[in-house]
Design a protein around this nucleic acid. Sequence first.
DNA 1: TGCGCCATGTAAATTGTTACATGATTTA
DNA 2: TAAATCATGTAACAATTTACATGGCGCA
Lengths: 182, 182
Amino acid sequence: MSLRYALLGLISKKPQTGYELYQTFQQQIIYFWNSTHSQIYTELRKMEQDEVISSELIYQEGSPNKKKYTITKEGEKDLIHWILEQKIKPAKIKDEFLIRASAFHLLSIDEILGLLDTIIEREQQILEGTLLWQSQHIEQEQPKFEQIGEYITSEYGIMYAKMYIDWCLKVKDILSKMDLEN
Amino acid sequence: MSLRYALLGLISKKPQTGYELYQTFQQQIIYFWNSTHSQIYTELRKMEQDEVISSELIYQEGSPNKKKYTITKEGEKDLIHWILEQKIKPAKIKDEFLIRASAFHLLSIDEILGLLDTIIEREQQILEGTLLWQSQHIEQEQPKFEQIGEYITSEYGIMYAKMYIDWCLKVKDILSKMDLEN
DNA sequence: TGCGCCATGTAAATTGTTACATGATTTA
DNA sequence: TAAATCATGTAACAATTTACATGGCGCA
């Protein structure tokens, strides 16, 4: 059901097509959920059946037609109820790199350092991307309450990437100290 | 396949039963993967068929019998190959609270503050638990290379929880500034 | 006497991923 | 001329979760 509420939340900000929602998931603008177009389109149709969203068909010449989904009053009630009354399940992280990190005892120091550098670079690029997105979409000086969601979740993305880089550096530091002893 | 390598990594440290592996997942000692006992037992049997682990049956009186799994040479080769040669997929986070946060525009300030306090407390408890676990399992002064995996992943858990709390406090700060203007 | 722990397993249902499918327009 | 973008959809497969199932032991 979580995917449903992630989509509902996005649609509640502004009416959107499945493709636009998919783009949002795709471009890592949200750091808290992910999905594919096939799952999104299927879920949207179920949501329309359950009348939490309604759709409007937009005919286009040249490009394919599209369906713009709008949240219904029922949908908004449903979403708010979920946010406030349903038990909050803890975050589920599936991080392939940390699986690797947990087995570092099988590698050489050089192999570990190589992997860490790859990840530092990856996270630095994500961080830059998010900072850019934030500067383009959020009024930093006087953020508006309507934008609170985008603001704080992009802020989360920034803090997460920074933490990840710091962690990599800390691991390097720990390793350098070990290196001296062996 | 990632679950397989998460399990292989844990077994590579010391031979373990399915139940012990499940406990490790359960007790949030690892912050990077999660699974249920049904999935773990099924995967372990597949892994034994594929000869990346081997099992030893341990008969017990009073308690049920158990199977202790040990990594094979083939398994270790397989794991190292996956760590070094396979493309690292980006972390997938599924965080129900952040879905809620992304829809905060639908709530009142008081409702938001209530949710944030719940999460701060949750993360503080996780943080304390992890710090305790680390102090009991890791030699902080002179950590051994054999323990590198547990050390750095628990360190990740600590940094992640701290970051999450800091983020909650930052959100509170952002809200308090908005409050004045409305 | 009912619940939780130990210890494993199967079955069903849900969720998520990858592949297949279409077709026009734009970009390299 | 091949790939990418827009835009949606279905089908097959894989991964994950929840429920069902067993049974003795210790605890309150």
